[in-house]
Amino acid sequence: MKKRISLAALALAVVAASSMTALASGINANEQAVLDKLSSTSVSYKGRTLSLPASYLNQAKNYMYTVELTKEQCDRIIALIDEAKSIVEGSKGASVSDIRSQVLTKANEIASVLNMSITQEKTDQGSQYTLKDSEGNVAFSASPKVDKSGKLVDGTVVKTTGAGVELDSLFAVLALLSAATVSGSLYLVKCKSEA
């Protein structure tokens, strides 16, 4: 749990630190260094090793295509990656909630400094973390999970794309029952009047 939270927060922090001018595109050498750092970083805890999944790396890269980072910012991001990793790996004995709290606090501080915000929402897939820039653009969104093979994944890759979402079926049935009841009642009234 704390591994997936810390890695998710790490990815959030990286993208938060990427908030810059909106004119640029492409990946410069500084940004590539950040992506290389992200892809090569893994967190070890009690004999298990977790690294960021491709979907997280892609989100960071895709957002970097829309911004431009300076060397200073990238150096800060890389230092932040190392700090976040240290929080988890140096947390022997600390509770999961303490670790999660520390890592998320760090991620929020970075986000607020760079005028970005992190929101957490409870969904059917668990907690979903979304990072938005000052214009409300989503920079990163994921529901961290550890799958059966022990890999960190995003639980919200495949969306609900059906006709029925939440109240669809309920309201459809209620509407039809109403129509049926009204029709039946009218028939009853008609029969009674004939009788």
């Binding site: 794309t161 059906g162 006709a163 979402v165 079926s169």
Partner: peptide, 12 residues
């Protein structure tokens, strides 16, 4: 991708 079955009303 999309939800399946195609004409099912409700979550699938």
């Amino acid at each position: 991708y999309t939800c399946y079955p195609f004409d099912e009303l409700g979550l699938t």
